[in-house]
Design a protein around this nucleic acid. Structure first.
Lengths: 288, 288
DNA sequence: TCCATTGAATGGGTGATCCATTTAACAATC
DNA sequence: GATTGTTAAATGGATCACCCATTCAATGGA
């Protein structure tokens, strides 16, 4: 589409065929001769159909980030559904990070740039629902981080190393001034930068998703007990040096021992390590 | 909650405080003395608030899988919003895999068991939106698979190995009878079983999410060109043997060389490897 | 005992209507 | 002429009042 301008009726590119609330087929009268598999009836609801069609246009490349969908009233009419139903679909797509809805004239539903942090929410829901455990998440994090360190060793560029260097300096400032919670923020950012240094956004996404929850635990721990990792910035410098020298063995070893000491710190007071504490309300700086 | 029964007014456990469309605070009259940062106004919309509250109850453990929310009409009234708005929120949560909405008397909104395949959709959206590339995804898959093989070597149980064995037998059947597309389905399942053999659902989730798209490419390739991996079942048997012997070196090497040959097959005809082909309509057996 | 009927509960969907925000165009003022 | 209000239209946000389709327990007749 890419109808960045033209306020009204942007070309009406291809009037979407109206959603038909397809009645469930009656299995062609009573006499079904060869009915091998009765797949569960998937009662198609209007909003599902709408979501699917928009995603289809996306996959086909007809819609691209920055494009604008027609106004709700128009699109609803084109699809032959009520505005309310259309909005349910748009809402879902907005929550999925595909759309951004903007009010006012010149507003509308815009296709978003993909938001790599969407995976975090999935992970959080899985944890809330008890589908995955904190133990599994921690273990996964250790392994993913090992992979990330190896890839970062291989692929980190000058700019990545500089960003990590700057992050360590901020960590030192925060340490010197006793701003413990800011230091946790620095840690969060450190792992994000490290993930980015792999040069692979998929890996980075995975890494971020397993790190986000972990950092919540650290935040909760630090903010409740006031304890803090000893010699953090120093260890970070050692690690960064190994990374700069592309010394995989050293870098992975440093990271592993650091993770272990963090884990020990977290497990000092297992009672406070409630899942609910970490998942509950969003801390400042954490809302993205 | 856990009000599995009691059709009407299930205890009315704790009437949620009504959603107040909090007007943006006027920064306490005009005179803001020390206004350091003007974070962008995040116009809270009713449905966001609702989603957050339900997720909060989930994180707090007040709501658990199997629980039922009050009927839409009741809940809307309790929250002080219209039914339409409430439905937007419920729709979003349903798409996120948190809820299942069921019609009819005794129907309602039920908290679901977590659906580990939710990450696949995120990955698909990221690809559709061009945020990640097929190259990044393939590369990530290679690395994740390497990790999975190592973990499976360490943790696979008898049942896991048996399931893989059974899968290989189905692969042999399909090969013998020339059912190429079924064989692709077997491959999809093989990787799922392998992921499960790690004993870590987080790792398995990650593995599945990077594998799903890949298998679409394979499916598209096989179904269009009719070519098929040579000696697939044989290679699978070799690999399974290594896995059974906990021979990490051998298992990872076998997997790596196999991946390389698959990659060569896929890249034979790069023109056909369109992203859109793979992302477009859902193939039978792939819809979950 | 079994099966058909019925009716209430519940999600699915519609249409009309209003509000709030945003922006461009325009007018008024300095 | 530049700045500053004013206005009006477009658009998403939200409400209300309905109606339909599905499901299932209760009812009642064969």
């Amino acid at each position: 589409m890419s109808t960045k301008s033209s306020p009204r009726a942007p070309g009406r590119p291809r009037s979407p065929s109206p959603i038909r609330r397809e009645r469930i087929p009656d299995h062609r009268a009573a006499g079904t001769p060869a009915a091998p598999k009765f797949r569960p009836i998937h009662t198609r609801r209007a909003f599902e159909e709408i979501c699917e069609r928009i995603r289809e246009q996306l996959a086909l490349g007809v819609l691209k980030p920055g494009d604008k969908l027609p106004p709700e009233r128009d699109l609803a009419q084109q699809l032959g559904v009520s505005r309310n139903v259309l909005r349910e679909a748009l809402r879902s797509l907005e929550m999925a990070g595909v759309l951004r809805l903007q009010k006012g004239v010149k507003g509308g539903a815009f296709i978003q740039e993909g938001d790599t942090s969407r995976m975090n929410g999935v992970m959080r829901d899985m944890l809330s629902l008890g589908t995955i455990s904190v133990r599994e998440l921690s273990e996964a994090r250790v392994h993913v981080l090992d992979l990330v360190v190896r890839l970062a060793c291989a692929n980190a560029r000058r700019a990545d190393l500089d960003a990590l260097e700057a992050n360590i300096e901020r960590t030192e400032d925060a340490t010197r001034e006793g701003r413990l919670l800011d230091r946790v923020e620095c840690s969060r950012e450190f792992y994000k930068l490290l993930a980015a240094a792999t040069g692979n956004k998929v890996i980075a996404m995975i890494m971020d998703s397993v790190t986000e929850i972990h950092m919540r635990f650290v935040y909760a721990k630090v903010s409740s007990s006031g304890v803090a990792m000893a010699r953090l910035a120093e260890k970070r410098r050692q690690f960064l040096a190994a990374l700069g020298e592309r010394n995989v063995t050293s870098a992975t070893r440093l990271m592993r021992t650091h993770l272990e000491s963090v884990q020990r710190m977290l497990e000092q007071d297992p009672g406070a390590m409630s899942l609910h504490v970490a998942l509950a309300e969003v801390q400042p700086g954490l809302r993205r």
